Amino acid sequence: MGAPADDTSTDLLFNQSLEKGLAVLRAFSAKRRTMTLAEVAEATSITKSSAQRMIYTLEKLGYVRKHPLTRRYQLTPRVMQIGFNYLAADTLIDVANPFLSELTNLTGETTNLTEPDDDEMVYVARFVSTKFVPIHMPIGSRIPMFCTGSGRAYLSALPPDEASARLQLMELRTFTPRTLTSLEAIEAQLADARRNGYATNREELFIGDMTIAAPVLGSQGRPVAAVHVVAPTSRWSFEEAQQRLAPAVIDCARGISNSIRTLE
């Protein structure tokens, strides 16, 4: 998912071995928790000999390990150090946390901060309410921009032509019977978000899950993240969520935006 990678075949500074090593790490997932050497090669589209070198090096560095009985490879907790270093170094998260905490206290619902990466939004901060939440989205989870409140909030804060151009490159696939997949319908959602100051998702990614989201803007007025609050359909009607949650979400995003501008 995302834009095609730049052509690096003639880039003398580009390290293809590093690219392959990172591809091996990214190949492991919930669907591929463990892999054989042949499966690693297939998942990363590299030769078996290259896969063997990558796996050997990553194993020596402590990022993967081989099960002594199954002989299948899996990631180790050391991989989390890379992601944690990003979270620890991201000033936006430090700034946002008090605002998210207050938003959770005010609404009684789970609140989140997501940042863009290609065609997806990545969870980087989260305050969970004491109430039941139908979908668990831990830090690092990724969701598509086009059909989520936070993604639409981010897109709505871009210049309309830029947002439209990005949408046209995305894979607009169906997740639930409610998922909007036509460009016209999604752009209508973005237009509403621009007018209202917030975006919505009404069970388009997960059944039972609604979100109200607003963009976080940097010093240049461009979006850098989005705040969203979860409104389970078991507790909220769509209209009630808009009326009662949207003002608080907008205020939260505005507070974070004003705070980070003083730091940039």
Rank of each mutant, 00 (worst) to 15 (best):
T44F: 06
M80F: 12
I143Q: 09
V79E: 10
G21M: 09
V229S: 12
G83F: 09
A38G: 15
L92E: 10
S49Y: 10
I93D: 09
G218K: 13
D117T: 07
S234P: 00
S259M: 03
T174W: 00
A163F: 06
F132A: 03
A27M: 04
R53S: 08
P68K: 14
D7K: 09
D90W: 01
F99S: 07
A38C: 00
P4Y: 03
H67D: 15
I250V: 15
A185Q: 12
A185W: 03
L190P: 07
S234L: 13
S141W: 04
A199K: 14
R202V: 07
G140R: 10
L155T: 06
S129I: 12
S129C: 06
Y154I: 09
F132T: 07
V95G: 09
E171K: 14
T34D: 04
Y63R: 02
P247R: 11
A43P: 02
V122H: 03
S101R: 15
T179I: 03
I250D: 07
L106Y: 03
A191M: 08
A253F: 07
D6I: 05
D119C: 10
N97S: 14
A38I: 04
V224W: 11
A41E: 02
T200W: 00
E240V: 08
I135P: 02
A193D: 03
E162H: 09
L180E: 10
F127Y: 09
S150P: 00
A246T: 09
A88N: 13
A253T: 03
V122P: 00
A193P: 02
P4R: 08
T179L: 04
A191Q: 15
A246C: 04
E187T: 14
M137N: 13
T148A: 03
A43V: 01
L183W: 03
R173F: 02
N105I: 01
A193Y: 04
A157T: 10
Y73Q: 01
V64T: 12
R65A: 14
P138H: 07
A157V: 10
L13F: 11
G151L: 11
L190W: 10
T176P: 03
G83A: 05
L25C: 01
I207N: 05
T176V: 05
L25A: 05
I135E: 06
V133T: 15
P144Y: 13
G149T: 01
S29D: 06
N85G: 15
L75G: 13
T111R: 06
R261I: 05
K48H: 11
V249H: 04
S49L: 12
I135T: 06
A185N: 13
L58E: 06
Y154M: 02
R72E: 14
I207R: 13
A199R: 09
L61A: 08
K31D: 08
Y154R: 12
S45K: 13
T174H: 12
M145F: 08
P177F: 08
I93N: 12
V133Y: 00
V227Q: 02
Q189C: 13
T233R: 05
L61N: 02
T36A: 11
F132S: 03
Q74E: 14
V133G: 00
S156G: 04
R173P: 00
P77E: 13
N85S: 14
A30Q: 11
M80D: 12
M137A: 14
Y154F: 15
R173N: 12
E239G: 12
Y56K: 05
T233P: 01
S49D: 14
A191Y: 06
E187D: 05
T34P: 00
A3D: 02
A153R: 05
S101P: 00
